[in-house]
């Protein structure tokens, strides 16, 4: 009788250990962190991403932004002119928007009239400008990770990107690793 009880207790103890480990894994794996993969290069979508990021950072949530493909246009500094680009890179560089002020709207762009009107409305209604949001983001410690592969693909150079305090270069695996430990993951 006593022996049966002992083995039963041992079995329960083993089960408890397994459960404890599982719970601690669950607790450790998700941080109070927001990861966004930003792929779109439209003014409205980048705005949405930045508003959410700044709000999250204001709530002391760690924010990591992964900029890839079209969104990289928003990180270009119009004042910088990198040297040594090949023909296709130069073409891409000319055709794609150079910086946040040149971004188009995904809807109602109307050859640039739309963005102008949106910016006018934002100013009138005291919404922070996109440029101001990037500045705030930098001060709040929001991390921007640039997808190195798409940067090379589009022929952009590190030297033409904005001066941002927390700018890093990495690959898709970095996003996956960051996102897997974030409690919120978004794709824009």
């Amino acid at each position: 009788m006593e022996e049966i009880q002992n083995t039963e207790i041992q079995r329960l103890q083993r089960e408890l250990e397994v459960l404890k480990k599982k719970v601690s894994n669950l607790e450790d794996s998700r941080k109070d962190q927001l990861s966004i993969a930003i792929v779109s290069g439209d003014l409205d979508k980048i705005l949405a991403a930045m508003v959410i990021s700044v709000a999250a950072a204001a709530m002391d949530t760690q924010v990591k932004l992964f900029f890839s493909f079209w969104s990289l246009s928003a990180l270009r500094d119009p004042k910088k002119c990198p040297k040594g680009k090949d023909f296709i890179s130069k073409m891409f560089g000319m055709m794609l928007p150079k910086g946040t002020k040149k971004l188009a709207l995904s809807n109602m762009n109307m050859v640039g009239m739309g963005p102008m009107m949106i910016r006018m409305l934002m100013k009138k209604q005291n919404v922070m400008s996109l440029e101001q949001m990037f500045k705030e983001a930098g001060e709040l410690g929001i991390e921007i990770v640039v997808c190195e592969m798409s940067m090379n693909l589009m022929g952009f150079k590190k030297e033409e990107l904005i001066d941002y305090p927390n700018l890093k270069f990495a690959g898709a695996a970095t996003f996956v690793a960051d996102a897997s430990e974030s409690s919120i993951q978004l794709f824009i």
Binding site: V51, V54, A58, M59, Q125, N126, V127, M128
Partner: peptide, 13 residues
Amino acid sequence: RGTACPGPLLEAK
């Protein structure tokens, strides 16, 4: 009052 969302939250923080 001179700023819209998420400005007030940011100022509060």
